[in-house]
Amino acid sequence: MWRAFGIAILAALLATAAAAQDAATMKKDMVGQWELSTTERSKTCVVTLSSEPAPQGLKLTLEPDCANSLPFTKAIAAWDVKGLDILRFETAEGGLVIDFTEVESGIFEGHRDGEGIYILQNLVAARSLAKSMEQMIGDWTMVRGNGRQVCGLTLTNTEAGPDNFQAFLKPRCDPQVVSFGPTMWRLEHGAMLLVAPNGATWRFEADDNAQWRRVPDSTDPLIMLRQ
């Protein structure tokens, strides 16, 4: 019995040590510049995370316009890692402002009640995404795998709600596309989503031929091409 008890204690100590090591590694990896934004990046803020200790957690710096873009950032005074993998922004007293969890390599999501989802990602990657969004704006053609055109549409940078931008179908689209009736679009974790008024989505991912193919793929694929 005592042997089993000793093994249990050793396992608990090893787990605690591993958790501490994981948290220390995450703290090291997070040091640098990050972009905090709404999901559609209409409001952004640059946050610089430091390894220097603060009265609560570690120091950070917010760019001057953060409070205007994202008012809740006024309360942020420090950052820390909680548990194994939760990035936390805290008040000067150590209170919670927002928690982030990694949903994709280098991309973190956090939620604030009554406000919605916020994204935190590496500043260089975020600016690359902004460039990608600019490249998406304009006229597109939707075709089948055999090259038959089924619809033309225009993606704009006009906001349409908290997460999306306006999209417009051109005349004489295929009945399937008309029935779906997308009126909005957005980029989400590297994919392009067309969104209907009822919330239904078609998801497209870039392939090796610089085309955007609807996923999941099929024997008669739907492909979007830039005009």
Rank of each mutant, 00 (worst) to 15 (best):
G57E: 02
T38A: 06
S51P: 08
Q166E: 13
S42K: 15
Q149I: 02
W79G: 08
T16D: 11
M224F: 05
C45P: 07
M26T: 09
L96G: 10
T183M: 04
N209M: 04
M192F: 04
A196I: 05
M133P: 15
Q121Y: 01
T39E: 11
E52R: 11
T25Y: 00
D208L: 08
T201N: 11
K170E: 11
D207H: 02
P55M: 10
G114L: 01
N146S: 14
N157D: 13
T44P: 06
D139I: 04
L194A: 08
A19Q: 15
G106F: 00
D139C: 03
L14M: 12
S51Y: 11
E159A: 06
V47H: 13
M133I: 12
D99W: 05
L169A: 14
F204N: 02
G114I: 06
A54G: 14
V103K: 13
L153A: 04
T219L: 08
P55F: 07
W202M: 11
E35G: 10
A24W: 03
D208C: 06
W34N: 07
N146V: 11
L70K: 15
V47R: 14
L187Q: 12
F108T: 01
P197G: 13
M30I: 10
D113M: 04
A92K: 15
S50E: 07
L194M: 09
D22G: 07
L84I: 13
I86T: 12
L60V: 14
A11D: 08
A67Y: 03
C45S: 05
I86Y: 01
S42R: 15
P175Q: 13
